[in-house]
Write a protein that binds this DNA or RNA. Structure first.
Length: 273
DNA sequence: AAATGAACCTGTTTGC
DNA sequence: TGCAAACAGGTTCATT
């Protein structure tokens, strides 16, 4: 479900609601997620007043005044919603959080590729969980030059390179295809055969694509929604993703679907070289 | 070191 | 209609 824009949309919808509220009680219905979780592991959060809601890569960070943080990753099918405590528990709702305000935060994830975890202030300072992650594409310092230097000594298709979180975070299967279309670069092109201007164009394309997706509330293909259940509408703006067989919006040629590293890639053979 | 493929799960869509 | 295969927004681990 979620790439950087969807997590950022969720973050923005949560922050004004959660800041100042308090973690009261946790109930883990099914702790068999990407990392095992249970009430004991979430104990560092108990009683904590929420200071901020942040994001690193596709991880949501709900931080308390004491410096602990609840870490949530949506995996492929995760949802996080803020609902009244009386709302019935849905199927695949694995974690329920009761807040001081009387509301509840519900984590639901049919495929269970997602993650709910807690770190105390010391864990957070050490930062080991995120140490391997690459550049944030919407932060200062990200540009074509950063991509180009990260690609030095590498080979392989640029699409796979973009989806490697050790290089740049937050760009998943949808936005990799969309960014490459916007930059006019063929997804199978080797990173060793991309010049300085094209890296620059790609850097700009990634930022523009992600920013616009955030502005439009993310992409709801099936079930993405923010904390209040509002769906995104960037899916209507997708140029190539999921549009194999349709006409390219720019040149009219037929959009192709190929498989790279086991994932679908969509591109226009006319616009992308 | 970096690239590839498989694994982790359930649900939905597609094709015979 | 029924059933099986293919596919789905991500990450991590083992193997080349």
């Amino acid at each position: 479900m979620p790439e950087l824009p969807e997590v950022e949309v969720l973050r923005r919808s949560l922050e004004p609601e959660l800041v100042g509220d308090r973690f009261e009680r946790f109930r883990v219905w099914c702790g068999d997620l990407r990392e095992p979780v249970d009430g004991r592991r979430l104990a560092p959060l108990r009683g904590g007043v929420i200071r901020s809601v942040g994001r690193r890569s596709k991880y949501l960070l709900i931080e308390t005044e004491g410096g602990a943080a609840m870490i949530v990753h949506l995996g492929m099918s995760g949802r996080l919603r803020l609902v009244p405590a009386e709302a019935p528990r849905e199927k695949h709702e694995h974690v329920t959080v009761w807040l001081g305000s009387g509301r509840t935060l519900r984590f639901r994830d049919p495929r269970r590729f997602g993650l709910v975890a807690a770190e105390n202030a010391d864990d957070r300072r050490e930062g080991r969980r995120f140490a391997h992650l690459g550049i944030e594409p919407l932060e200062e310092g990200f540009d074509g030059e950063a991509l180009r230097s990260a690609a030095r000594g590498r080979r392989g298709p640029v699409k796979n390179f973009l989806m490697n979180a050790n290089v740049v975070v937050g760009v998943g299967n949808i936005y990799a295809s969309e960014s490459l279309f916007r930059a006019g670069i063929h997804p199978a092109r080797s990173v060793a055969r991309i010049g300085g201007e094209r890296w620059a164009a790609l850097g700009v394309a990634i930022r523009e694509t992600l920013r616009r997706a955030i502005r439009e509330g993310g992409t709801t293909l099936n079930d993405f929604a923010d904390a209040e259940g509002r769906e995104g509408y960037f899916q209507v703006s997708l140029s190539v993703y999921g549009r194999g067989g349709e006409d390219c919006p720019r040149c009219g040629r037929t959009i192709r679907r190929i498989v790279q590293a086991g994932r679908s890639t969509f591109y226009c053979p006319g616009c992308q070289r």
